[in-house]
Write a protein that binds this DNA or RNA. Structure first.
Length: 238
DNA sequence: ACATTAATTATGT
DNA sequence: ACATAATTAATGT
């Protein structure tokens, strides 16, 4: 189905690609070489699925570049964004949760570069490579913690505080410094934000317009930059 | 305090 | 020109 793309494959993968990725940072160069040789690399356009919810988990992945959002589809067909994943993190690690099928869909939020391995290598990765297991379980723990606090937020906080919190989290994971402030480094729509915060895009739109007038935030289409993070923190705590 | 509906405008290909 | 994104107002719960 994709032999045709092989002409445009990436140049030979360099060890330095993985040496800075947390799960592999403690490994010898030759270990990384064999890991790379077992992997396959693929580039994705923005907005396409890397794997889908419910599909059998054939491979696990690491995000080399770009951003991915993990999305679940409710029975009524609406999307709920569970979380965003920045470069350097693993995804599709169903095996770490004891699943043999992906628990959610992974959509690229921007153009992305991904490495993947067949799932049968998972166990050997965990046992053979020092730091891999601890690092992955740490990120798993961090992710479920994040989803948890989001659930608590939805139940306790008002919309204004929820979107403020969502923006702040996005800042931590995908913030990029620009002259005007800190920009969220991938395209994000009001629709996306509303899915993150369980509101409507209209409410989000009004909030952003309001904050923009107050000089808190700037936004063009699909781009949001925060000029005054501290004010957002204050808002999220009121 | 927030959702829904609908109409209008802006923006990217 | 067309589709998609964003704003705005009016109305409903």
């Amino acid at each position: 189905m994709d032999e045709k793309n092989m002409g445009k494959t990436l140049a030979r993968l360099d060890e330095s690609l993985l040496t800075h990725m947390p799960p592999f940072s403690k490994l010898e160069k030759r270990q990384i070489r064999t890991i790379l040789d077992q992997s396959s690399a693929r580039r994705y356009d923005a907005g396409v699925a890397i794997f889908e919810e419910g599909a059998s988990a054939e491979r696990f992945y690491i995000l080399l570049d770009g951003y991915v959002r993990v999305v679940r589809i409710t029975p009524t067909g609406e999307q709920v964004t569970a979380l965003h994943i920045p470069a350097g993190q693993l995804l599709g690690i169903a095996k770490a949760l004891g699943h043999d099928t992906y628990p959610a869909t992974a959509l690229t939020a921007s153009e992305s570069l991904v490495l993947s391995w067949p799932m049968r290598l998972w166990d050997s990765f965990v046992t053979e490579y020092e730091g891999f297991a601890t690092e992955t379980y740490q990120t798993v723990g961090h992710r479920i913690g994040e989803m948890n606090t989001r659930i608590v937020e939805m139940a306790t906080q008002q919309v204004e505080q929820r979107v403020a919190n969502a923006l702040l989290r996005l800042l931590n994971q995908a913030g990029r410094k620009v002259p005007e402030g800190i920009e969220i480094d991938f395209p994000i729509t009001r629709q996306d934000l509303s899915e993150l915060t369980a509101t409507t895009l209209h409410t989000v739109s009004r909030m952003l317009s309001k904050w923009e007038k107050q000089g808190l935030v700037q936004s063009k289409r699909k781009r949001i930059t925060i000029c005054d993070p501290h004010a957002l923190v204050v808002l999220s705590e009121s």
